[in-house]
Design a binder for these strands. Structure first.
Lengths: 158, 158
DNA sequence: TCAATAGTTGACTATTTTACTCGGATATTG
DNA sequence: CAATATCCGAGTAAAATAGTCAACTATTGA
């Protein structure tokens, strides 16, 4: 289970723009240089970000992209959705052949993956671009984790 | 970002075993029939589950696998780790070229993905096989989510 | 002891997804 | 009109996933 470059790059680029003055547009070339993401790939991503209404574009020399809304009004989940990064935890579509046969047709594990997906979605909904830029993440994450758990978490999350 | 069949099947199979009497072993053939997972694939998975000490095997006719510990002592994260399903949210290994260049070498998004990974790990650590078998998941997940958020969560989690 | 059952093991292949690249078109500025 | 930048569709290479295959070993019961 891993987060690919698409979602990661999209958020990185949006953070990059959010770090700049709202007045002037940021060109993909600049972002490409700073983040070391290839220009054509960025173009692909920003096509989607624009169509989802998260950024506005300015063409021609001196052009680039600006945030369409204040950074405290753009959630990380908005960005991920824009570039088609979704969280797929289950395969239990209605009437599907796969996965839902244990215990007389009821799928016990469905609820598990569903709960996990919701957990993640809640988190991604709760964090805004502004939060990331200002380093306000430890608060959103939880503090007091037991020593013994710490170790295991590192293994799981890698 | 999606959960593959490996992790899903491993947990499904473990749930299947947990649903049976502890005294008699459950054969992979039975699990394959009930879950519609192919036998060779199950063999591959159970090799790892056994080597990680989550199940014990009994060879010969009437043989199969049993849980090595009570189901309330097997966490979902244990199962996922056993079959090499980890959560990869960052690529920021020390001295890596990728991803950590914005803002004078400090990677703002690193904390974000890190927090998200921890969030998931905490959840998977908190749920045991017994919880899943007994349908005790809504408690572990959160209840009161605002109406407006519900809709967005469905989009993100898909 | 023999046949059937069931786990053990390593290697191999097909499919799908991801992560890109490429070529060209269009708009804007100086 | 030339340089800069966004727009857009299609195509490709690499990696990860999902699953197969063949052969071997241990155990049980007739």
């Amino acid at each position: 289970m891993k987060l690919g470059t698409k979602g990661r790059y999209a958020v990185m680029s949006m953070v990059d723009i959010a770090c700049h003055d709202d007045k002037e547009a940021v060109s993909l070339n600049d972002i490409a240089t700073r983040t070391e993401i290839s220009l054509p790939y960025l173009e692909q991503l920003f096509m989607k970000l624009r169509k989802s209404g998260l950024v506005t574009s300015v063409r021609g020399p001196g052009g680039g992209y600006k945030l369409a809304r204040p950074s405290n009004n753009i959630r990380i989940s908005d960005i991920l959705l824009a570039v088609d990064v979704q969280i797929h935890t289950t395969r239990c579509e209605p009437n599907s052949a796969m996965g839902c046969r244990i215990n007389h047709g009821r799928c016990l594990t469905h609820d598990l993956w569903d709960a996990m997906g919701r957990q993640m979605a809640l988190f991604l909904n709760s964090v805004t671009l502004e939060d990331v830029v200002q380093g306000r993440l430890i608060e959103k994450s939880m503090h007091h984790v037991k020593k013994e758990e710490q170790e295991n978490i590192l293994k799981v999350v890698s």
